[in-house]
Write a protein that binds this DNA or RNA. Structure first.
Length: 160
DNA sequence: GGGAAAATAT
DNA sequence: TATATTTTCC
């Protein structure tokens, strides 16, 4: 028997501020400006709060050209240590799915339909700079697992 | 390209 | 240790 989480959705609700009225996703694609309006990019901050590098960048002035996804420091292991760093830490920065990103993601999924949702379409609808197909697919996987897990406890009331 | 599982990082 | 995110394989 599972510990029936009476309010499993409550956990998500607290992460999704209801007051955060996001623009309903229509058939039209979301403009990148819209993404900026959220919290994806901080119009006041220099860097993005959503993305966090493994290593804290010193007080270097980031080029304000592309404030979102800057080029990862490839000069890190250019010629310092003799140890060859595995290409593990040389990937893109650790993407943190914030509540806004989650809300956006779910919004797109809801509009597309859970049965017709595909990473490619989601990525296009979200139109968030930096988000790659991999990120969407991975998150979609987690979303499905999460949904499947709690779907049982949700429909359980009808079965019993 | 999409989905699932393994691997890795926090 | 558990969870989140990335990476790899089918």
């Amino acid at each position: 028997m599972r510990e029936d989480d009476s309010n499993w959705f409550s956990k998500w609700e607290e992460e999704f501020p209801s007051s955060e009225d996001l623009m309903p996703i229509t058939q039209t694609l979301i403009t990148p400006d819209l993404a900026i309006a959220f919290d994806i990019r901080s119009p006041h901050s220099h860097h993005t709060p959503s993305l966090q590098h493994h290593q804290q960048p010193p007080s270097i002035s980031m080029p304000s050209s592309q404030p979102n996804f800057e080029e990862f420091d490839s000069t890190e292991l250019g010629g310092g240590g003799g140890s060859d760093e595995p290409p593990r830490t040389l990937k893109r920065p650790w993407l943190v799915w914030t509540s806004h990103l989650h809300k956006r993601f779910m919004d797109v999924v809801a509009h597309l339909g859970i049965k017709n949702v595909i990473p490619k379409t989601i990525m296009q609808l979200m139109s968030v700079d930096g988000l790659t197909h991999e990120n969407i697919a991975s998150h979609l996987q987690k979303y499905r697992i999460y949904m499947k897990t709690y779907a049982w406890s949700f429909f359980r009331q009808w079965w019993k």
